[in-house]
Design a binder for these strands. Structure first.
Lengths: 201, 201
DNA sequence: ATTAACATATGACACCTGTCACAAAGTACT
DNA sequence: AGTACTTTGTGACAGGTGTCATATGTTAAT
């Protein structure tokens, strides 16, 4: 019997998956949770065989959970199931040694098969993503640049950002300038779009 | 027997819902499609009792489909099922006389109940959204302002936008200026964020 | 101790943005 | 024709933005 936990914030999908997984005689959904915090509690207490984690959840993302599971040396397999084919996400997932990375665009049967494979020690990655792995573009932005771009994304101006980060506005402009060059774009707006797309901020 | 079509671009959710709806003895899923174009073809041909439509789909959005169904005077009930609680979306849905507007955050049972109610001529709206309807803020932006903001969202500069819309850059700046004032924000970036949030662009 | 690399800052420059007052042209209604 | 309203354009101004050359202090590597 494969004991799995399902962490997914969209109730409709979570409920549906739980119902369907329960029909499989070798799979048991021991918990279904709607946020990363609850997921972490359950995972520590129950140590499931396979953790099925969405990325974008409240409190803790699936990727942060994968990281925690890794550093705690828990013997759980981890599968990320997400809408997003962002290279940055996949990269981070690989860095956390996750055992599977599936898109929500896959059929359920593929998910079920993947659970069995992962439980057996195999690695599973959605077809479309295998290619992405080889062309892995690493995030060219450093910490400061990321912090600045994230604030630009919120709509803050150079001045507001400088106050928030305790830097002069000249420095902020320099970071933005280097970000724009690194991303080969032409404005802060485009920089934010590109970086979001790739999952870098 | 309630004949329903399911239009949802995320295969995993679509498949799961189809399976679960099929267990209901009074509901028959006559078609499941992944984009708005195919949905429209099936709806015209089959005239289902209830159309369950996601909003963000390729080719045609669920809201555009609702509009088409309305003007074609097809005797189908329409239910929008979406991730987004954006007032603008709900507003548009109401303008198209849809019979239901559910969030994907609801449990499946609620969806099933809703299908029966809608089929009976009742209207169904997710709890959290009922309030939104009363505080309906109408989109203060005019067509031009919307067009400009959409291009800003893509990351285009004033100059690029002016070329695309065959207007001078002065005019673009004026539109942006009025948009910024109407949205009570302080930069194009914030204007884009606010307008996206409300579902106005 | 020297070199290199990094984070932060500065000032100058050309250009872009947001605002405003105003104007020309078109449409619609009276 | 007269009035009001809408769409688009202009020019000017203050301030913001992106780039660059350059400087200073810090840390890490040789």
């Amino acid at each position: 019997m494969i004991r799995v936990i399902l962490a997914e914030d969209q109730q409709m999908l979570r409920g549906a998956l739980t119902s369907l997984l329960s029909f499989e005689s070798d799979i048991q959904v021991i918990a279904e949770v709607a946020d990363g915090q609850k997921a972490w509690e359950v995972i520590q207490r129950e140590v499931p065989d396979v953790c099925i984690l969405d990325i974008e959840m409240p409190y803790l993302t699936g990727l942060e959970l994968a990281e925690k599971i890794k550093v705690a040396h828990l013997p759980c397999k981890v599968m990320i199931v997400t809408t997003f084919a962002r290279p940055g996400y996949l990269q981070k997932a690989m860095d956390c040694d996750v055992n599977g990375y599936l898109l929500k665009d896959e059929p359920i049967d593929y998910l079920i098969e993947a659970i069995r494979k992962v439980n057996n020690g195999e690695k599973v990655v959605s077809r479309d993503l295998a290619a992405t792995l080889f062309m892995k573009e690493l995030n060219p932005l450093n910490e400061r640049e990321i912090a600045v771009l994230e604030l630009v994304k919120e709509g803050l101006t150079t001045n507001e950002i400088s106050k928030k980060l305790f830097l002069t506005k000249g420095t902020i402009r320099n970071y933005l300038s280097t970000s724009i060059q690194k991303l080969h774009v032409e404005s802060r707006q485009q920089a934010v779009n590109t970086a979001s797309d790739k999952g870098w901020i």
